[in-house]
Design a protein around this nucleic acid. Sequence first.
DNA 1: AGTTGGATGGTCT
DNA 2: GACCATCCAACTG
Length: 228
Amino acid sequence: MFPRDLLAGDTETAARRLIGARLVRGSGPEARTGRIVEVEAYIGLEDLASHARTGRTKRNAVMFGPPGAAYVYLVYGMHNCLNVVTEAEGRPAAVLIRAVEPIAGVDEMRASRLGVLGGGSGRRETAAELSRRRVETLPKARLAAGPGLVCAAFSIDRRDDGRDLCDPASPIRLEITDEDEQLPIAVGPRIGIDYAPEPWLSRPWRFFVPGHASLSIAEARDRRGQAS
DNA sequence: AGTTGGATGGTCT
DNA sequence: GACCATCCAACTG
C-alpha cells in the first residue's frame, strides 16, 4: 500500500516520493508490477501548463478532489495518461506517471500493448503488422517507457478515472515497501507543454532516475536534466 | 541521428 | 474549429 499522507503535501515532494514506488494492476500470479522512474508535477490553478489552468471542468474534476485518486485522460485522440492526484482537496494538483520499469507480469503487459494496437483481424494492414512485430520483440525495459505506454501496458483507460490508488483493494494501485531503495533523482523541464508561457514552460518539474533504461523516448531525446 | 507527418477523438473557445 | 501532458514509421542527410 501507499500512505495517502505522502501525497497530501506539496506536489514536488509527492513527485519525488513516487519515484521508485510501484504501480500495480491486479493480483495473484498475473499481477502487473512496475517501478515508477519518471514523473511530472502539475501544480495548482496558476500553473499554465496544467489542465486545471482553465478552472474546474468535467475532464479535470478529479484533480480538485482528495489526494491518491487516479486522474486519467485521453490525449491526441488515442493515448491515455495516468496521474496521481496530490495536495489537499479543493486545490487541483497531480503527478503524471511518465515511465515505469516492468518488474512482474511482463507477458501481460506485452499482451496489453498488443491489444491496444486494435483489432488486427483485417489484413492489408502492413503498418499495423509491423507495429505488432515490434511490440513482440520489444525489450522488457521499453514496454512502459512513456505516459501513453504506461497506460497501454497496464490496461489503464478513462474508466479508471477517479479510482483510489491508495486503496489496497483497488485493481490499480500504488505500493511502497521498506525494501524499495531510494533511487537517485534528476530534474528537468516538463515535456510536451510548448503552449505554456514562461515561467511555467521552464519549471524543473520533471523528476526521473538519471540514465535509467526505462525512461520515456522524449526524455532520452531531451537530455538537459540536471541532478539534484 | 534527426526531422516530419499521420493516426484519431475528446475538450474547450 | 483548433488544439492537444503521444507514439511510431518513414523520410532526409
